[in-house]
């Protein structure tokens, strides 16, 4: 009896191992590919670094980003101030570290929010189809007609100015939600429509699964991959767009510390003190780059066509 059981276990083990080498699920396969991609590790490391910077800037520096030494304004990098001081005499290194929070907050909330709104409406339109699809589709088309920066300019000039840190950040995030969800919606809708005719969905329906169950446990997990990829790339795009809006004077504004605000302040002094521009621009670009590279790496891993 016990021997029999043992024999079973052995067989089971073999089965398990042969499964992991031979036929892998799409997700396991993608992870297998990702692990071998150096770009994935570089971008993941950068993202972890920036997120830690955003949560706990105190780990990286003891200098206050709001402490100004006017007499030392525009001094180039030295052993005391690693990145030098900016136009107002602030320590650039400290400000670059503290600036991560606003940019990462905007990027994460904007990307997560558009992903959630777009996914919900995409599931609704793609699964329900018919009249619901037509209505949601028409509404999305209207929002889709407003290009990101143009739309943001209009909405942000209309919203009342504010001094609260979170209100300032939230306004920019809100604008990205309003203008960004149709992209995700379109993606999700077409992805759902590809998944819906599959046999396992038909089987679940034949077995009497409720629409809620079919959508959440069969359609959503199989249709979400493109949304995750595009949202990751968009996270970088939103960080960059925030900087552009801050440059135009309608995104984040001082006293908020963000890379975008720092860069637009630095442009005035570019000719005499280029390092004031260099460091925040480098931080911003690295963050944007990290998210775009991560999205690309995940896409390559999930997309069988690219192999």
């Amino acid at each position: 009896m016990t021997d029999d059981l043992k024999a079973f276990e052995v067989v089971d083990e073999r089965k398990g191992s042969s499964r992991s080498e031979g036929v892998r699920s799409l997700r396991a396969d993608a992870w297998h590919d990702l692990r071998r991609n150096p770009l994935f590790w570089i971008s993941a490391a950068l993202i972890v670094l920036f997120v830690v910077m955003a949560i706990a800037p105190g780990l990286f520096t003891n200098t206050s980003p709001r402490e100004t030494v006017l007499s030392e304004a525009r001094t180039p990098p030295s052993s005391e101030n690693w990145f030098g001081r900016d136009v107002q005499g602030y320590d650039l290194y400290a400000r670059c570290i503290y600036g991560a929070r606003a940019s990462i907050l905007v990027g994460v909330f904007a990307a997560a929010g558009t992903a959630i709104i777009g996914t919900i409406f995409g599931l609704l339109a793609g699964y329900a189809s018919g009249a619901t699809d037509a209505v949601v589709g028409r509404v999305a088309e209207i929002f889709f007609a407003l290009p990101l920066i143009l739309g943001a300019v209009v909405i942000l000039t209309a919203l009342p100015p504010s001094d609260e840190y979170f209100v300032i950040v939230f306004k920019v995030v809100l604008v990205f939600w309003i203008l960004g969800w149709p992209t995700i919606f379109r993606l999700m809708r077409s992805s759902v429509m590809q998944v819906r005719p599959n046999d396992y969905v038909q089987a679940a329906r034949a077995l009497g699964g409720s629409p809620w169950r079919i959508v959440t446990s069969h359609i959503l997990p199989n249709a979400i991959a493109p949304v995750i990829v595009v949202s990751t790339i968009n996270l970088g795009v939103y960080i960059s767009a925030e900087a552009t809006l801050s440059f135009l004077g309608i995104g984040l504004q001082p006293p908020t510390i963000s890379w975008g605000v720092m860069i637009s302040d630095a442009l005035v002094a570019m000719r005499s003190a280029p390092h004031v521009l260099l460091f925040p621009a480098a931080f911003l670009s690295l963050a944007v780059l990290a998210f775009i590279m991560l999205g690309d790496a995940v896409r390559d891993a999930f997309d069988p066509k690219s192999r």
């Binding site: 000719r271 280029p274 521009l277 621009a281 690295l286 780059l289 775009i292």
Partner: peptide
């Protein structure tokens, strides 16, 4: 192309202008 995408437009513009 990655480098160009990662740099905000106003930085590229200002640097090239300089």
């Amino acid at each position: 192309t990655l480098a160009v995408i990662a740099l905000p437009l106003f930085v590229t513009a200002s640097v090239l202008q300089l």
